[in-house]
Every structure is written in structure tokens, then in C-alpha cells.
Amino acid sequence: MTPFSIPYFADEANLPASLPTAEEIASSTDLLSETGGRRVVGVGDHYVVKYGMRVDLLEGETMLLLERSTTVPVPRVYAMYQSADKKVNYIVMERIIGSTLKSEWTRLDQSAKEAVSFQLRAIISEMRKLESPGGYCSVGRRELSDDLFWTNDPTKPFAGPFDTESDLNNAVIAKYLESGYSRYKADHYARTFEQLFQNHGPVFSHADFQKKNIMIRKRSTAETMEEDGMCWNAANVEGVLIDWEFAGWYPSYWEYSRAILGCGLWEDDWSYWVDQILEPFRVEYAWTEQLFRELWS
């Protein structure tokens, strides 16, 4: 599984319009999201651009792999490159015309939620067909991108790649200690992990499976949507997963644990449907929830 060459530009024949220039990207007022070192903007009718000093082009490589090796619906990637001074990374991708599942969820009835969940379960099943290039890693057998492993000290890498689940467990404990927490509690976690976090093989995971990262768009063969919303059935809409920056081969419990953690304030029934879409790992979630919240506090 060879990483894609950077810079990457799709064949001009496959572009819906001329690629946006750096000036057009910087001047766009169609701001879709902004977090530290990352901006996502719309440029015209066809493009969304994710750019910034903390954008990792690995996300674009991941989407290209999915597009070329699976039937998982993802935004098409049209370009990936760096600014001349190599300080800013750009991913130019397809603009998905639709709305997020988060914005639509409260409008859905039981049958609509069943239809969406059926599609998402099929997408997850297709994702799982991507075999790991070796252990727990991201595309190209590089480090995992989940921000659990992030550190501002480059001399203390915690993100792998990992040959075994035990290696990954040890890195999590090391990150816990590096964050300044009690070594006695770290020992407690280590004993627990040694017993509980074993035999979870590496599976390809989105690793940020939340409603905000699922777009719902009309299928190309569907009739025009109703003015007050979409005609919610599996025949005329499809889910498209976006925001692949954390994706990679994680232990099999990781996707579920992260998804339930993403329920946030538990203001709706999304957690029930996560149980229908993903294989539940309830005990593993309970322990990861405790540890993750400590690391994020």
C-alpha cells in the first residue's frame, strides 16, 4: 500500500471546474468550519478546501485510498499540495450537496432512522474490508492520527505505528504519564489493559464517527427533494462520511468507543443507533471513556 505522491492533482478531464487558486481560497467567505490551524471553506459550486498549518495531507491520501479500493462514499479529492514555503497544506475536494445528519436528526422518524442506519452499517462493513498493511497504523503504515496520541514534544512520539495491541496500550499509558497524571493510577490502567485490551485486531476505522461527520445527499437518480426536507428512504438518499483526519487501523473496539464518546451531552437517541450500526464494545468503552476524559480535562 504505497502512499500517494505529493503534490497530487487529479486529471483535468475529471475536474468539474478549474481548481480554485490560493487567492480564491484565502478570500472565500463561505466558512464551513475553523479550528486551531485548520479552515474549511467552500469555493464556488463544486469545491470544498481544507487548509492550514495543522492540516495533514494524510487525510487526502486516506480518501483517495477509499475511493480507489472500496465503494465507501467519500468526497472526491481533486488536489493535495503545500504552499511554496511549505507552511500551509491544502486538500481540495468535492463539495457534497446536502446537509449533515446532525442538522437533520431531530426531523427523522423511526423508519427514516432505520434507513439511514442500514446504509451506515453497510458503509462500515465495506470499510472493514481494507486490510492493515501491518499492525495498528494509518495509510502507508504511518502513525495514528487520533488526537489522543498528540504531544507537543516531538522527542516523545506516542502514535505508532504499533505491531501489537500491547504496544498501543503501552503508548497510551506513556501518554498518560507524560500528561502529568499519577504513576500509581497509570499502573492501575496498565494492569487493567493487560487483562482487558487484548485480542482486538486492527480494523479500518473512521475514528470520529459522529452525526456532524455524516453528510446526507440526494442520489443522482432520485427525484427532487421536498422543499421542507429530504424524502427519507434508502432509495433516494445516501450517506457520505467526511472528515477522515483520524482514520486508520485501530483496535476493533476503538470506533465504537469513540462514537459513544462523541454523544457529548446525550441530548438525543443517537447512542441507540450507534449500537445498531457498530458492534458494541461496552466494557472497553467504559474504560476508555474514563481514561480519555482524564487526558482531555
Rank of each mutant, 00 (worst) to 15 (best):
T2L: 11
S5H: 01
S28D: 01
V41W: 01
G42Q: 02
G42A: 08
H46P: 04
V49I: 06
G52M: 01
R54Q: 15
D56V: 00
L57Y: 01
G60Q: 00
M63L: 12
L64M: 13
L66T: 03
S69V: 04
P73D: 11
P73M: 10
V74T: 12
R76N: 14
V77G: 14
Y81A: 02
Q82W: 07
K86D: 07
V88H: 06
N89G: 15
I91F: 09
R95E: 08
S103M: 10
E104L: 13
W105M: 14
R107E: 15
L108M: 15
D109Q: 12
S111P: 01
K113S: 07
F118H: 10
R121F: 09
A122D: 14
M127A: 09
R128C: 05
S132V: 08
Y136M: 07
G140M: 11
L148M: 14
W150E: 15
W150T: 11
N152S: 14
D153M: 08
P154H: 09
D167N: 07
A174T: 07
Y181S: 12
D187V: 11
Y189N: 05
L196K: 13
G201S: 12
I214H: 11
S220P: 00
T221Q: 09
A222S: 00
M225A: 08
M225C: 00
G229T: 03
G229V: 00
G229M: 00
W232C: 01
N236K: 02
Y250P: 02
E255R: 05
V274Y: 06
D275I: 04
V283Q: 15
T288K: 01
L295A: 08
